[in-house]
């Protein structure tokens, strides 16, 4: 691993569940990773993983609700060089067993977002124990 930071730090932010929020999600992540002094290559990868997870909320958890006024929350925490990114939303419940990426050999548009997340992060898991009012609680972790 690179020369990492890191200070213990936690920040969270709420975003409207819509595709135009994805840019704001990336800006938020970049600002936090700047504070954590995470080096550029890793920062780019983490921003991609986070943006893909946020995109999955917009695209899948709110598939039938393009005009929703709901929010999603992204929380980035770093403790003892372990980075944890939590996502909270109130969309359609996700069945983790059905979250699969396409086979890379089967080249076709779509199905890569989950692959990128799994490729970049160490652990990707949906929490069973919900924190009200949230329906889905996804946690991505990576040891720095």
């Amino acid at each position: 691993m690179s020369e990492t930071a890191l200070i213990n730090h936690s920040e969270k932010k709420a975003f409207l569940v819509k595709s135009s929020s994805l840019k704001d999600v990336r800006i938020f992540c970049r600002e936090v990773f700047e504070k954590l002094k995470i080096e550029q290559n890793l920062k780019d990868e983490l921003v991609l993983a986070i943006a893909e997870a946020a995109q999955n909320i917009v695209k899948h958890a709110y598939k039938d609700e393009p005009d929703t006024k709901d929010i999603m929350v992204v929380e980035i925490s770093c403790k003892n060089n372990k980075l944890e990114i939590a996502f909270y939303d109130m969309g359609t419940p996700v069945n983790p067993e059905k979250v699969k990426h396409r086979e890379l050999d089967n080249v076709k548009p779509g199905g890569l977002g989950t692959f990128f997340i799994q490729e970049i992060m160490d652990v990707v898991e949906f929490q069973d124990k919900k924190k009200k009012p949230w329906i889905n609680h996804l946690v991505l972790t990576k040891q720095l």
Binding site: L48, A51, E52, Q55, K108, P109, L112, F116
Partner: peptide
């Protein structure tokens, strides 16, 4: 400077 899976899909679809 940034492209996500949606952008990659456009490249694949364009190619095909």
């Amino acid at each position: 400077q940034y492209m996500d899976s949606s952008g990659i899909s456009v490249l694949i679809e364009s190619h095909q």
